[in-house]
Amino acid sequence: MSARRIYFVVSILVLAALPWLIATPYWRGILVLCAMNVLLALSLNLVIGYTGQLNLGQSAFFGIGAYVSTILVKSYGWNFWLAAVAAVGAAGLLGLALAAFAVRLRGHYLAIASLGFAVITYQVLVNWENVTQGVRGIYGIMPPFSHPAALFYLVAGIAVLVYVLIDNLVRSPVGDSLRAIREDEVSAASLGINRALWKAFAFCVGAAIAGLAGCFYPGFVGTLVPDAFNIVESFTMMAMVIVGGMGTMIGPVLGAIVLTFLPELLRGFGELRLMIYGIALTLVVLFMPGGMVQAWMALRARLR
């Protein structure tokens, strides 16, 4: 068995054991949250880390997934799974729509355009009260499984599946093309890579995965308010990707885990939670641009 396989099997076993090792309802909830954050970090990493598109609107797709699935279930009586498929589709389609012209934009322009998209989405959630209940929020949302361990298994299972698929994809020739676009768009085009197509592809897939994560959020929290999908959420997702190490597979996973648990451990300090994100983001960019993955590599090199 290769080292990869061994790591994989060990991770699965740890995941399976986790809800029984950490048995209090509160910490089980944090586990679910962590799995969801991993999913979000993976989705954003595909767009920022592998394709080099600075997308600050990921919170919007997360929100669209959450609202579409919840409204379909609550107002139209859809089955949860069917609603989830529709929600993922809606997030993906909107991602594609935004990508349709965002692919022509680069760097700062894309950052601001996606930020603008996130603001618009947030405003729609607040103002379209007939459908979204506005700031009053939607209450009494049931998760697809009531047992917290089952919910964790579901979300973690999906996160593992998504991880494996993206990992395969980025090691495949598609990954070569995406990274080529990230490094230099003009020379990517000079090799026959249709940059608009592949950028839109990454954007759309990233949006769909964020939408998928969004499907599980409302049932887990029980309520749904627009503030959960404020642009600050985009920033926290980005912090996870950067702190872990963007453009690597394991980095964003580690980033999501650390930045989910660290603030929980420091919960007594209130407002410090987001300050930690801010400090971590700035310091990592300044001193360790490759994130935790880079730090680990450096450490290993020194120990040898």
């Binding site: 920022i48 080099g52 600075l54 760097g107 700062h108 950052a111 600050v232 920033f235 980005m238 912090a239 950067i242 407002e271 410090l272 939670r273 987001l274 300050m275 994100y277 801010g278 400090i279 971590a280 983001l281 700035t282 310091l283 960019v285 300044l286 641009p289």
Partner: peptide, 19 residues
């Protein structure tokens, strides 16, 4: 690099707000 300074200032922003 265009992305790095931008991301760093987002960090500063989040930091200042919460401070």
């Amino acid at each position: 690099d265009e992305l790095r300074p931008l991301i760093a200032t987002i960090g500063v922003s989040v930091l200042l707000e919460n401070a």
